[in-house]
Design a protein around this nucleic acid. Sequence first.
DNA 1: CCAAAAGTGTTCATTCTACACCCATGG
DNA 2: CCATGGGTGTAGAATGAACACTTTTGG
Lengths: 250, 250
Amino acid sequence: MGDENEIIANQNKGEYYVPYYQIPIDKFFQFGLSVDCVVFGYQHGSLKVLLIKRGAEPFKGQWALPGDLVYPNEDIEVAARRILYDLTAIDNLYLEQTRVYGQVDRHPIGRVITIGYYALINIENYNPKASAWADSVFWIDVNKVPDLAFDHNQILSQALKTLRYRVRQRPVGFELLPEKFTLGHLQELYEALLNEPFDKANFRKKILSMNMLSNLKENQKDVPHRPARLYSFDKNRYDQLKSKGFSFEL
Amino acid sequence: MGDENEIIANQNKGEYYVPYYQIPIDKFFQFGLSVDCVVFGYQHGSLKVLLIKRGAEPFKGQWALPGDLVYPNEDIEVAARRILYDLTAIDNLYLEQTRVYGQVDRHPIGRVITIGYYALINIENYNPKASAWADSVFWIDVNKVPDLAFDHNQILSQALKTLRYRVRQRPVGFELLPEKFTLGHLQELYEALLNEPFDKANFRKKILSMNMLSNLKENQKDVPHRPARLYSFDKNRYDQLKSKGFSFEL
DNA sequence: CCAAAAGTGTTCATTCTACACCCATGG
DNA sequence: CCATGGGTGTAGAATGAACACTTTTGG
């Protein structure tokens, strides 16, 4: 948001009527718009989601997804990034729209349409931060999410479904890992995300055959077993392959 | 819509402020909401889309997708079905939400968020019908779509992309065909949708091996070549298979 | 008989799956 | 020298692509 006090009016509306029902068009401009973000992180072998305790009415004090109203002159994705920045102090997170939630009675103070987004974050870079609308912020295991305000449980489960889907067909899993990781870490991540085991040998062959990881020629340290090779995701290489028709699939 | 004149107020808003910016919350309730529908049909080997000439301002007289403002007390999908019913006099079309379009300046008379939907229709059941907001209605080949009002070209191409995707992983293609069809018809449909040829033998083996078609034991008539066997999509069978873990893929 | 599309069978290559086995390190 | 995970090879099954061939109808 630039000038958050300059709320634009919809200046031209006066001239218009909805001709077929003879209702002044202003009556149609009563909607509120919000954004709710499902922020996923991965730690200690399990998938977590960032929840807040709401610091404002309605539902003050309850668990909820981070979200906020969109300004009348603010782009939707910009609003989503504003919320994420306020919460994590990180820019440029991986962000994807899921769907719209528009039940007439979903918000107690009026008709508020909300747009669901999910974001992926490398939990090690995370900088916890309460904010204007959140008293406090917690990582919660995705399998232990409590009852949430509004229809946020539904938004969360849709986001999870989209993520599980996406992760099989685009290399987005890496967003959840540190820069350098082992193939074992990567496999554990996929197993946690998809809740299904993979054969080690086959998983490695598949991932490596895609040719989108850089072998860092560097090993793990201080592990009580044979140290594993470290890799990183090579985005340039991937973009190049993609432009040649290759498509990630798992 | 039931009572289209009973536009609800958002009664409880008076009490609320957005505390962190000290802006009265009414300022956030200025959005309009609309729905735009991409209606696909299939005829003579090519995929068509239903376009209208707009009968109301703004963009009166221009080509556009069928769409309308949503009432403040109307559910979004209900609005989409209302539009489709007004246009085609058909209930219960296959309908899927695509995404939200919310550019600040996408609508000339104010901030209107629109929700994209696409619908599939068996063109033989189609009952053309102008309506309050459409002067006239036409089927246009999907490859020959003109410039459309608003951001409708973008909405259309996203819908097409979603359809192409969906059609490979769920048996939705049948929605575009008549009740009874031949495997040749089905193959032509897929070739038109995906713009890629399939091997006849392999296509048949794949489709039939899925076990979701009923062999009607009945043949085509009056064709100048060997008449083909007619099939129909067996939704019960498919649901049964799906519940056992089967998933359509092509 | 011919043209045209329906309908089927086989071969070969590729990919997937399961599983066995060896390797390097810390304790 | 043992426990622990890292890392690789191979055999057999399943799937997919290409293509040739037979069948049935109308003209």
